[in-house]
Computed example of a mutant assay.
Amino acid sequence: MVSSLLRFVRPDEIQIALTVGSLEVAACLQPLVNTRLVTSRVFQPTEIDASSDPWRYLGSRIRAARSARDMSMQALATAVHVSKGFISQIEHAARHPEEQLVKAMDSVLKADGELNTAYRLAVRWTEDNEAGGNKYADYFDAVLELEVDAVRIDWFGGGLFPGLLQTPEYATEISRRPFRSTSEVQSLVDGRMERASILDGGAGPKLLVILDEAALRRPVGGPEVMAGQLLHTARLIREGRIVVQVLPFDAGAHPLLAGQLIIMRFADAPPVAYVEAPHAGQLIQDQSTLDDCALSYDLARAAALSPEASLERIESAAKEYST
């Protein structure tokens, strides 16, 4: 399979060095081992460095083609049968489009194949990075952009509480590590607390969590920190703001043992999944792999305790840490 290494000189010029590599297409998690009425949020135009990666470059070419034809984002969305919000996500590189959609946009915008070429280069660049085992340092950035638009988030947190549920004390403990300064830790914790604010009020996503029992039993930060984390989670459950199901140890093996899984659903755009392992993460948009992810999540949820029994276990664990 052809892969490529791209060096972007400026937004309208690309230098390409082609190499030969390989990419093994993997199912959900393997790379790393309802609808409700809402107001669609379109990404606000910000300064975007189109030279920073080829997906941003593709977005800049779409915007330029729209501008050249004096076509609004909504008009393009209507012409290619997707939502305005989805076009905005593509233009800002929060989502990667399928090839057929790019071909349709290229045709509607009369871009003479420019968008198709930019898309192929982006795909090859991504293949090269994945085949070489390289991931971006900001691999979670796309999730941060997307989760605020999601109408529903299905989250399997593995052996930790999901970031949206963490207390400042718990987040501080898991952020500490050798060679990381106190200010860096505090910055990470502040960012996590800001993210959690999407659960405030009634406009945020519906959050459904499968929590491995290991997260309840691992004494992160000691008894006081754990009791606070468990009671915070229980409070959110009792307030009806989240649904949590504990996956007990005696459930044995389950489909999500390999790592973390997040599935985000949107009112006006296709769903997306995110899988993560230490120091690496990957967004999944391919429909067949998304189906695999959804099935794995559903099977794990089927093996979990009921929400009522889960709340009882969480509060029981909190009492154990408090005594």
Rank of each mutant, 00 (worst) to 15 (best):
L256A: 06
D154I: 11
Q285N: 09
T323W: 14
E47S: 14
A304I: 02
P278L: 12
Q15R: 15
T289R: 12
V42M: 04
V80Q: 00
A150Y: 03
A94C: 03
G252M: 08
D53H: 12
S316H: 12
Q287K: 15
S183D: 15
A294C: 14
A64W: 03
A253R: 14
P54T: 04
H279C: 14
L121H: 10
L115F: 01
E173I: 05
P31E: 04
Q260V: 14
V225W: 03
A303E: 09
K103E: 00
M73W: 01
N116Y: 00
A64H: 05
G221I: 08
V148T: 11
T46F: 12
S183T: 14
V42H: 06
A234Q: 03
L261E: 02
A122G: 03
L101I: 01
E130H: 09
A68K: 13
K135D: 08
S60I: 00
A118Y: 00
L257F: 12
P97T: 01
Y321S: 07
Q287Y: 14
G133F: 04
T35L: 10
A253P: 07
S197F: 00
S316D: 05
S306L: 12
P248I: 02
A317S: 10
L290R: 13
S316R: 12
Q30F: 11
Q166Y: 03
I263T: 13
A94H: 05
L247E: 02
G133Y: 09
E127Y: 10
E47A: 15
R180S: 10
Q229F: 03
K84D: 04
S52H: 05
T39G: 11
L58E: 00
W155T: 06
R36Q: 13
Q282R: 14
E312Y: 05
S40P: 06
P31G: 05
A50L: 02
S88Q: 00
R238W: 13
S310L: 03
D70V: 09
R192T: 11
